[in-house]
């Protein structure tokens, strides 16, 4: 256990120093992120009813971006990390070291969370400029934490599936980008399920992603979910655990496969 913590800390320190302290990329990345928000958010003002409170719209956008950022972290920080490992030739070393990937991911997880935290501050500032300060109020803190835990479990599971697929086939960056765009929209990550067309709503409820999103939206915006709370809570956890179990099995299978067949080459993008 102590060894695991030491290894995770070493990874955290290395990444924190290179990504947060030494490199200016952290700041540049946040500026770039704020401009991308502006690009896609500004046209939305053209749809808005002048009677509608801009701050409510800002709060809605804030929540959607928060969920989207977590998807982004799962795709680009966790799953794509395996891609970088293949490209840098580190994957083989990890496998040969026998330490597994757990210390590595425990080390980079806080970096992702720090990044999401700062990105959300930038998001808040940009939305305040476009629409005014988001009218945020956590109305149910326990539900918010529960929703966040479910979201993280689901995203770890999702990263396992994506990561497993990357090491098995060398999926291109384009494909990952498309998945990270479509998935949050199709599974109700960005929009309340009540606002989705019926078929999409049913589809979203069949995926584990919709439950934490509905819980977070309720706890931050007060928007009522489409199903009863006890069902939402129970089904959310059930789906999350099932998803995590399946994805872990899949990932282990892919690792075994590359031990037999070797890793795939990945394209630059």
């Amino acid at each position: 256990m102590l060894k695991l913590i030491r290894r995770a800390y070493a990874i955290f320190k290395a990444y924190a120093l290179s990504d947060l302290v030494r490199s200016k990329g952290f700041v540049y990345g946040l500026i770039s992120f704020s401009i991308w928000i502006l690009l896609f958010m500004s046209p939305l003002t053209l749809f808005m009813d002048p009677q509608q409170s801009p701050q409510t719209i800002a709060a809605y956008s804030f929540t959607a971006i928060l969920i989207f950022m977590f998807y982004g972290a799962a795709t680009w920080d966790w799953a794509a990390e395996l891609r970088w490992m293949i490209n840098d030739g580190r994957l083989e070393y990890y496998i040969a070291s026998g330490s597994g990937f757990l210390p590595h991911y425990l080390g980079i997880l806080p970096i992702s969370l720090i990044w999401v935290f700062f990105a959300m501050i930038v998001n808040y500032i940009v939305l305040s400029i476009v629409w005014g300060p988001p009218a945020l109020a956590v109305i149910d803190i326990s539900m918010f934490i529960y929703g966040l835990v479910l979201l993280i479990i689901n995203l770890i599971a999702y990263a396992f599936i994506l990561g497993g697929t990357i090491i098995a086939s060398g999926v291109s960056g384009f494909v990952m980008e498309i998945i990270s765009f479509i998935l949050p929209v199709a599974t109700g990550g960005l929009t309340p399920l009540s606002k989705l067309p019926k078929p999409l709503q049913t589809f979203a409820l069949l995926t584990p992603f919709s439950y934490p999103a509905e819980i977070i939206r309720y706890s931050m915006l007060g928007w009522l979910p489409v199903i009863e709370f006890p069902q939402l809570i129970a089904r959310g956890m059930l789906f999350a655990i099932a998803f995590l179990t399946i994805s872990l099995t899949y990932f282990r299978y892919q690792i075994k496969k590359i031990l037999r067949e070797g890793t795939r080459a990945t394209a630059l993008w």
Binding site: F40, L44, F47, D49, S172, F181, L190
Partner: peptide, 29 residues
């Protein structure tokens, strides 16, 4: 995959903004 992405991207971006726009407001406005 890059070739297919080129075809999909305009729909993806348009769909994304329309989806959000229709959710928070109205096309008539």
């Amino acid at each position: 995959s890059a070739f297919i992405a080129m075809i999909i991207y305009p729909y993806l971006f348009a769909g994304f903004t329309l989806f959000f726009g229709y959710t928070i407001g109205s096309p008539n406005l």
